[in-house]
Design a protein around this nucleic acid. Structure first.
Lengths: 353, 353
DNA sequence: TTGAAAGCGCTAACAG
DNA sequence: CTGTTAGCGCTTTCAA
């Protein structure tokens, strides 16, 4: 009567109600071990005897036990989830990165939570709260966090953060990116070096593209002192993000209307560059003869275009997998060697320039 | 000495250690109310007096309290997370759907967990375990779940499931999709109706594309009895998923090598159709004069191609938002009117055919 | 309305 | 190596 601690036939204490999902206790009871041993058998097989391991596994398979990771996360303070925030998923520029991130995380037992912030960071705040509330083991931000409020909340939460796709002197925590300014400069120098003297740009209106383009224009002005010092001397068409093939087509028309002599266009995305290529074809403008076209991103299709597109290659896959391993290292308490990485970029010269 | 239940100055019981994230108890103490009242003030403001509401909100803002949703989920058995499984994110065909899904969920306070199954469903099993373990309020599958093992686990878990992007007579639970067979049939009839008599296809090798194409070929054979009854009479080039612009280019070359007289190609993606367009241009084949091209997906760029691409429009946005609302309705205990929806498809006729 | 008690299902930290 | 004891931070349930 005292202790109903019989293992085989408990009086009738909280019998596992039929249909309910089994818990560690159910498994423990059926395997004749303590719940803690079940936990150990599952999370750290080496720490239990072969007999227990085997009995536990047998029961787990038989009853179809799937550990509740919410409970585990609450107890261990490790959720094994990582949140990623992208401006928008349908820009496709970030896909490689998201793919590498998911893969890298999945391989180590982590799951990805995806959030879209939009380009106008209005939703950013609610999103941040939804993320922090789930106590992820890490957050990957596409672009750097601009709002001071957001930076503070993230910092206060103590969650490891990787900012990506940009560089800054004052990262919240870790950083994997490249310099948009340097891209602007490099492309301007490249086009100038190829003899182009009527250089133009079609750029998205998001903050990174704007900075990139400012440097692009400034570099052109430096290289061609005759143009003066006003950036407006470098014809630029600004289109709303996310960019599209269509915005490339209209962008080129607009530029030509402003200045028919343009001989080079730097586009802030490959998709847009493709639109420029297409529009040039439709207008009978020869590429690269009359017009050089440079894109950004080096998406999968770019090398197969006609002519193959010269573009700035950004290694989204590298960014994603480095971000994944930085977060995992940090989450598992390993020291992180280099928390700030510049993955750089390469101008891939192809037929369009 | 008995009960240290003084509100203002507790003896020294678990003082909120500096730097630790605040919990309901901290907020409750500072606001001079019970933890439960904090919970109510946050989740159901109407159920609490204005004074308490205000005091709680003040403290929440002041200390930057963000509720731990893992703990909340454990206690309430509602995680407010939905898992989505896509074959791969970089096919871009599913992006619209994922975007609509994220948006629809975020608007109601739900978060998306994204998993990539790969096209070879080898990882599918581990992924399923990772998902079920997190006790999401719903799972959205891209394509129907083929493995019997997987279906059983999902069913046993009791989690609401929405299968998408396909139709089946025996859904696990809910379903939002369209018929790949009907698409195959419709496109074959469309091309035949436009007078094409040497109809070919370039298709991915995934299961849905295969079924679609089988019906496509069979319909062509029915419409042109002279071809016999062997599907091989309809030239088909099978390429590995995910498809790309490059596979469209090589696919067309391969088809022409087999039969130079081909006058129509049905491609299993818009990206691939674009490759065909490009290759035709390079080879001097006139589209649509000599060759009609039809894609699948109606991606954003398709209307801007040259010529604009005729394609099968699939409303990924609709699929995503319907899936979101089905899951949310189910999660919140509302009756689900029509758990199986055929969103259909439309052949959008443009310049390429 | 508000509060107190009792867990949700798991694992950290100790003992044995 | 194995078990016991306490929670993790929240919400359900019931009583006041």
């Amino acid at each position: 009567m005292e202790t109903p601690a019989k293992k085989d036939a408990p009086a009738h204490p909280r019998k596992s109600r039929k249909g309910a999902t089994p818990t560690v206790r159910d498994v423990a009871r059926l395997a004749g071990v303590a719940p803690m041993s079940v936990s150990r058998a599952l999370n750290n097989p080496d720490s239990v005897s072969p007999e227990i391991l085997q009995r536990v596994r047998e029961v787990v398979d038989r009853v179809g036990y799937v550990p509740n990771l919410l409970a585990g996360g609450l107890a261990s303070k490790k959720s094994r989830m990582v949140a990623a925030v992208v401006p928008t998923i349908s820009g496709s520029v970030f896909l490689e990165m998201v793919q590498a991130l998911t893969d890298g995380l999945a391989a180590r037992g982590y799951q990805l939570m995806l959030g879209q912030a939009g380009y106008e960071n209005s939703r950013e705040d609610a999103l941040l709260e939804a993320i922090i509330g789930r106590r992820p083991d890490g957050v990957v931000l596409t672009g750097i966090m601009r709002s001071e409020q957001g930076r503070r909340r993230l910092l206060a939460s103590g969650i490891p953060v990787v900012e990506t796709w940009d560089l800054t002197d004052s990262p919240i925590d870790m950083l994997v990116g490249f310099s948009h300014e340097q891209i602007g400069k490099a492309v301007a120098e490249y086009l100038h070096g190829r003899g182009r003297r009527k250089i133009a740009a079609i750029s998205a209106d998001d903050e990174r593209a704007v900075r990139r383009n400012r440097q692009f224009a400034d570099t052109v002005l430096t290289l061609q002192p005759g143009l003066g010092t006003d950036r407006k001397a470098v014809p630029t068409c600004v289109v709303p993000a996310p960019t599209s093939l269509g915005s490339g087509r209209t962008g080129l028309r607009e530029l030509l209307a402003r200045d028919p002599g343009i001989d080079a266009v730097f586009c802030s995305s490959d998709m847009m560059a493709q639109g420029v290529l297409l529009e040039a074809l439709a207008l009978g403008i020869e590429v690269p003869g009359q017009l050089a076209v440079v894109g950004l991103g080096d998406l999968a299709f770019s090398r197969d275009l006609h002519p193959p597109l010269t573009t700035v290659r950004i290694d989204g896959t590298a960014i994603g997998s480095i971000a994944a391993s930085l977060i995992i290292d940090r989450a598992e308490g390993r020291p992180v060697e280099a928390p700030v990485r510049d993955v750089g970029f390469v101008i891939v010269e192809r037929g369009s320039s």
